[in-house]
Design a protein around this nucleic acid. Structure first.
Lengths: 279, 279
DNA sequence: TAATTTATAGAATAAACGTTCTAAATTTAC
DNA sequence: GTAAATTTAGAACGTTTATTCTATAAATTA
């Protein structure tokens, strides 16, 4: 190796390329290097090697393998990268917009930026608008539920699958009512009063979801509702109701805040269960 | 001096304030410190002192004067500053923490707030790290695809369902390979070279997903991969590869940024199709 | 101006640094 | 299954590190 990469992106590319042919320990370093560039920029050989779980000399060998005289030389790339003016997020948006203006052509700003902006705002709104009390009540219900059923269609189905995944992840009985084989009714029929139902429903409030909820209410199954309006037809019969305003970009509704809420509920539940176990 | 500043902006403010009452050499250091923060972040005492035209020990005295145990402690602030992603984010965290402090009660911050913080940060990172070019290439592939297959299991399944929903929403043929009835192979068997495959795969890289991808590659189906590391086993064979770092709160990985990316792709595709139609 | 305080530079020090060399361990090849 | 080659961890290396201590220089005060 004679021509070591001169910039971090180049190095990363080459490391990724050669990764599969690296020995065990060198691969370990490669992994760490790609995942924790910041640590490498500031850390010492001793600290980094410990953190990456390899011997200090392995770092030097790694650097040598990629053509550097030693670890320090390679480390320089990581420092260099950090020094490159990383303009703040807002500034980048501003620059992008200005660039658009300058070019004269009416083109889209980087779509990702629009989404990030929109979702960030929506997330902040979420934190402000959801009462802590509702979170606690919802978690109460989930703690006491022998099983948790989840229903939601189309866009809401995405959130349903997350709930299903997350709850099973923390060893809760979760049943996703997905209507496979057109069996909404059948899947919902095993719900009992000591269970719980999480329903996610947005305008235009699909009948499938409504029907499942109604049959649950008949059986006195407590309902946690996640919806887009406090005037949603199910809002009044829900034990707990979360009203979530999603970000919207060019008429496309987002899901980030919903997922964020779902996660918070799942982890809140996990905590509660842990604490119960201790006592 | 007992309470040294904990952030670089604070330190800078105090240095400026006390500047006029500093001795000759300390003032020299102050000058240098305010002008060359980056050098201080990475340099050694020897290098910095030489560059600033003072004796090495002067740097230590300077740090002591402002309440630090030594130069290294003060240097930490300069490093920290370089790591900070965006001022806006940092400020939010700081304010939130201060608010907590003001209340007097030392309590766990509202879970939702933790998530919002983590997700916000991850979102901003996403916008910076995903190259516009990759977005365009991915959209190119999706535009040209007669049908789009989507595969992802467990956590990634949530994202898959979103893709499936979003693509069908804009009248694209989208086939979700969900493995219902254990038919991963069968569902994947109808893929053809003029289609496209979106695969979402995270460590520990499920076999189900791998198998589907391999059979797609055999048929020359272009692959758009969304994964968590550029060292992912599928990364090297993908046409386009998005590496997404998800937010993490108490070992629970988030999905917000993934959804954000998915949305951006879907809407980017929708736009492109609209524009094509016009021409 | 002399005395006293304060600030400085230099020497000294021990700890930590990155690196090299070597023997052991592991993998690969036959 | 043995031999060769590669990879590894460990010890040892000379440097460099940040810091402390101290004699000297400068500034301040009386």
């Amino acid at each position: 190796m004679q021509n070591p990469p001169k910039t971090l992106p180049e190095l990363k590319a080459i490391v990724a390329e050669r990764y599969s042919s690296l020995s065990k320990r060198l691969a370990q370093v490669a992994q760490y290097l790609l995942d924790n560039p910041d640590e490498i920029a500031f850390g010492t050989v001793a600290v980094i090697s410990k953190d990456a779980g390899v011997h200090p000399s392995t770092l030097v060998r790694f650097a040598n393998t990629f053509g550097y005289s030693g670890f320090s030389e390679m480390q320089g790339l990581f420092q260099q990268e950090l020094l490159q003016d990383t303009p703040s997020y807002q500034e980048r948006i501003r620059l992008a917009q200005q660039e658009m203006h300058d070019e004269g052509t009416v083109q889209e700003p980087h779509l990702l930026n629009q989404f990030v902006s929109a979702n960030t705002k929506a997330l902040e709104h979420l934190a402000q608008s959801v009462p802590l009390r509702d979170m606690e009540r919802a978690i109460d219900i989930l703690v006491n539920a022998k099983a948790t059923y989840i229903v939601g269609v189309r866009r809401a189905f995405v959130v349903s699958t997350y709930f299903s995944y997350a709850l099973q992840h923390i060893d809760r009985r979760a049943y996703l009512i997905d209507g496979v084989g057109g069996m909404y009714k059948e899947q919902a029929s095993t719900m009992m009063a000591e269970d719980a139902l999480i329903a996610i429903s947005f305008y235009p409030y699909a009948d499938e979801t409504q029907n499942v909820v109604v049959s649950a209410i008949d059986k006195k199954v407590p309902l946690i509702l996640i919806t887009d309006s406090s005037l949603s037809p199910l809002a009044s019969i829900a034990e707990v109701c979360f009203v979530v305003k999603e970000a919207e970009v060019h008429t496309f509704r987002s899901l980030s805040t919903l997922l964020c809420l779902a996660q918070s509920l799942a982890i809140g539940l996990a905590y509660r269960l842990e604490n119960q176990q201790k006592n």
